[in-house]
Amino acid sequence: MIQLRHLHKSYQVQGKTIPALTGIDLSIEQGEIYGIIGHSGAGKSTLIRCINLLERPTSGEVIVDGVDLTKLDEGKLQEKRRAIGMIFQHFNLLSSSTVGENVAFPLKLAKRSKAEIDKKVNELLKLVGLEAHKDKYPSQLSGGQKQRVGIARALANDPKVLLCDEATSALDPQTTNSILALLLDINRKLGLTIVLITHEMHVIRSICDRVGVIDGGKIVESGNVLDVFLRPKHPTTQEFVEQVADSTELREAVEHEKASGNRTIARVTFLGEKTYQPILFQTMQETGTVFSILQGTISRMKDTPYGQLVIELEGDVAQNQKTIETLRQRGLEVEVI
């Protein structure tokens, strides 16, 4: 659906060339939710704005639905942009227009008939749960409601792609979760390809299928969210994972236990239905191993349940190693810390 090939973007600042993106290669499949995560200044906003050519790349290809947008003249580019909706961090609503008028705006630009516009606006407001707010103005809405209007407006021309530029970073946690649930629902109902950028790992973990980590204008790590989240390789990725992993407390606990004697500390990862099975308890009973839990969590990565426990095994090295091998044979991932 979307392919970025050898994408470069530089800016001229006081006579100097400042690179923002360097050699981006990215492929996003039809119907998936792809997240791009990075710190401020990493290049993520520039990257997402290159997808619809709000920022024109210095070099490289931007292929959307089989067409290289960089090769189009302005008229054909405008036509292709109608298939790419976009929502923004600060909503960008027309303050002097009602909710209904905001959603109708792109339809009027596309010269649709009044009957078509009214029908589509009503359908979209129902989809985002704002039927009762059609005649209100943005100043009368909460932040979450404003973003719902932005989503409805972005869907007005039946796009194939929805770009989300920090769409939840101006919202409180509860409202963020409701907007993420709405985006996931839209993705499933409409088969829409969604690309979102964020600096919050919680957002990636909640709804994304795959993720790319951007740092210094480069994609430094990418893959399925489960793989990247549970086995982060790049230091930037590890920083983001620590946002939701209580790593400071874990390090302190590990150091304390290591100082107290010859003990084995391991991280055990459960995926899918194994998350809810008593594999750890049964194995410890069978091997006669005494253990304690230093840290643990059970959660979901989009639709997949997972669990991670950091455990301390008491006993001799040989017995602990045998227990670890048994856990691995039973389908758990075990990493000795």
Rank of each mutant, 00 (worst) to 15 (best):
residue 214 I to L: 12
residue 121 V to K: 04
residue 295 Q to W: 03
residue 89 Q to K: 04
residue 181 A to L: 06
residue 122 N to P: 04
residue 119 K to A: 15
residue 1 M to K: 03
residue 125 L to C: 08
residue 21 L to M: 02
residue 252 E to R: 15
residue 257 E to F: 12
residue 324 I to F: 04
residue 42 A to K: 02
residue 64 V to W: 15
residue 309 L to N: 04
residue 4 L to K: 03
residue 252 E to P: 05
residue 145 Q to I: 08
residue 303 D to T: 15
residue 266 A to T: 07
residue 243 Q to L: 14
residue 220 V to Q: 05
residue 155 L to R: 11
residue 264 T to I: 11
residue 134 K to I: 15
residue 127 L to Y: 05
residue 333 E to M: 08
residue 43 G to H: 00
residue 208 C to W: 00
residue 101 E to L: 12
residue 142 S to P: 07
residue 321 Q to C: 00
residue 2 I to P: 06
residue 314 E to V: 10
residue 323 T to D: 12
residue 42 A to Y: 08
residue 48 I to M: 03
residue 3 Q to F: 13
residue 39 H to D: 10
residue 287 T to C: 05
residue 129 G to A: 14
residue 154 A to Q: 07
residue 265 I to A: 03
residue 55 E to C: 15
residue 190 L to H: 11
residue 166 E to P: 15
residue 203 V to I: 14
residue 71 K to F: 01
residue 40 S to C: 07
residue 190 L to I: 11
residue 229 F to I: 09
residue 306 Y to S: 03
residue 72 L to R: 05
residue 113 S to W: 07
residue 94 L to I: 12
residue 6 H to A: 14
residue 265 I to P: 06
residue 254 V to A: 05
residue 93 L to T: 07
residue 11 Y to W: 08
residue 43 G to S: 08
residue 161 V to W: 07
residue 4 L to E: 00
residue 38 G to Q: 01
residue 139 S to E: 07
residue 5 R to N: 08
residue 326 T to V: 15
residue 67 V to M: 03
residue 11 Y to V: 08
residue 3 Q to L: 15
residue 216 G to R: 03
residue 309 L to M: 14
residue 109 L to D: 05
residue 85 G to R: 08
residue 169 S to R: 11
residue 236 T to Q: 12
residue 83 A to Q: 09
residue 278 P to H: 14
residue 311 I to F: 07
residue 32 E to Q: 11
residue 109 L to G: 11
residue 185 D to T: 13
residue 58 T to V: 07
residue 163 L to M: 10
residue 51 I to M: 10
residue 305 P to D: 06
residue 11 Y to N: 03
residue 59 S to A: 15
residue 33 I to F: 13
residue 147 Q to A: 06
residue 20 A to G: 10
residue 337 I to A: 00
residue 148 R to F: 13
residue 304 T to E: 09
residue 118 D to A: 09
residue 39 H to V: 11
residue 148 R to Y: 05
residue 24 I to N: 01
residue 210 R to F: 02
residue 288 G to F: 11
residue 94 L to M: 12
residue 312 E to V: 14
residue 292 S to D: 13
residue 258 K to N: 13
residue 297 T to A: 11
residue 121 V to D: 01
residue 1 M to C: 05
residue 146 K to I: 11
residue 111 K to A: 08
residue 186 I to Y: 04
residue 284 M to N: 03
residue 335 E to A: 06
residue 178 S to F: 01
residue 34 Y to K: 01
residue 263 R to W: 07
residue 149 V to T: 04
residue 256 H to D: 06
residue 266 A to R: 06
residue 66 G to W: 07
residue 227 D to L: 12
residue 138 P to H: 11
residue 326 T to G: 00
residue 38 G to E: 02
residue 157 N to Q: 09
residue 173 P to L: 12
